[in-house]
Design a binder for these strands. Structure first.
Lengths: 147, 147
DNA sequence: CCTATTTAGATGCAATTGCATCTACTAGGA
DNA sequence: TCCTAGTAGATGCAATTGCATCTAAATAGG
């Protein structure tokens, strides 16, 4: 059995703790401002990017790395909050199209500065420019080869 | 409002997707072998490290970055599976001491090679030695200053 | 056409998580 | 001692997640 090197283990534990710490503090910050969670933000952003054409739930699920039922229920909740609309597709009777409402656009816009400030504070301020470039490059080497 | 640089954003998204992908694939691998989840592994490892002295739940919670109630319930489940024992503390009537059972030790031991293989495959094989050192160093710069 | 497969999405039910609160015990004064 | 805070841990209840399955519609093969 091949054991990982100590560097590998160190990378793995840092990866986990860093991403969990950041996620937790961003979520906490959003919550103190009475705003929705990160998962909502991600969904709202993808839907906004899709523009007036909207986006199909199955596409969203791929971009957000969520399971199908998770996507379905996330959309339920976001729709209940009035941030998106669901419209039946005409040429495919199974599907629907998700679009952002003005309120959804607003919500994302309000969330962004808070989110952004945390990223700047937790990442940008801790790395020099060349370190940031290097880290970006190294992390992308660990990303799954696109399926 | 200060927007993050594109490097910052890139780091953040990679950080999230990489750690989620790795976590998901390790969990999946453990599950196909009929083994418990990563969170159990982490707990078992910390408890094992504590040795015969055992460990108090409040210490465990700090090391695992779990909320208090999460720790309490995780320990419930692990105990129900017979992997740990809970013993009342004598000099502090509120507390308890957690220790690993032989079965708990075995379980961790069986989980490790599977876990390890995934780490080697997903991290070690994708980085040169010097890249690994660099990545470890950069990630640790992002870690929360110890409270 | 007609049947078998596949795809998009929803949903019942169990397990887990989050939140708030509760109990029991300890510690620190007055 | 008595009262007040603080700490360790558990727990009721609501929200979320995971799993398996289900429905409806599209597509493929004969």
């Amino acid at each position: 059995m091949t054991n990982p090197t100590s560097q590998t283990t160190r990378i793995w534990t840092s990866l986990l703790t860093v991403s969990q710490d950041l996620t937790d503090s961003i979520e906490a910050e959003l919550k103190t401002h009475g705003l929705p969670k990160l998962s909502w933000y991600d969904a709202l952003l993808e839907i906004e990017k899709a523009g007036a054409d909207g986006i199909r739930p199955y596409e969203l699920k791929e971009r957000l790395l969520l399971p199908q039922y998770g996507t379905s229920r996330l959309l339920d909740r976001i729709a209940k909050a009035g941030l998106i609309t669901r419209q039946d597709v005409e040429n495919d009777g199974r599907g629907q199209i998700i679009r952002l409402t003005p309120k959804g656009r607003d919500t994302r816009k309000v969330m962004w500065p808070i989110y952004a400030a945390m990223l700047v504070r937790s990442i940008e301020h801790r790395l020099s420019n060349s370190e940031a470039v290097a880290l970006g490059r190294l992390l992308s080497k660990l990303a799954k080869p696109r399926s």
